[in-house]
């Protein structure tokens, strides 16, 4: 039996890698992909704990997370498309209207 601790450790590592990816990348799209990585890490954690506590609720949540992530990806990409149309760029460093 693989202990749940291992899976949790893996989830933690994945999450942190997602964070690093977010800060390394420079355009909206790839940063969005990093966010997806983080979401998956969260899913993994859910399942690990579900197995550990012996309840099925974790799997339910994972199902919903996947669904919502899909919807979110759709909308997010639509927005990125809009931004691209208006600004002709999706480099985050160029999008600083919030400055000041």
């Amino acid at each position: 039996m693989i202990p749940s601790a291992a899976f949790l450790a893996l989830a933690a590592l994945l999450f942190v890698l997602g964070i690093i990816a977010f800060f390394v990348k420079k355009d909206l799209l790839t940063q969005f992909m990093a966010v997806e990585v983080m979401l998956n890490a969260g899913n993994l954690a859910f399942l690990a704990l579900a197995k550990g506590f012996g309840r099925a609720d974790g799997q339910m949540l994972v199902l919903f997370v996947i669904t919502v992530a899909a919807a979110e990806a759709v909308i997010g990409l639509a927005i990125i498309v809009l931004v691209f149309r208006q600004r002709k760029t999706i480099r985050t460093d160029d999008l600083k209207d919030l400055k000041g």
Binding site: L10, N43, L47, A50, Q59, V62, L63
Partner: peptide, 10 residues
Amino acid sequence: IFGLLDAPFA
């Protein structure tokens, strides 16, 4: 890995 966690559906 999900499969390893006894979550085939997931």
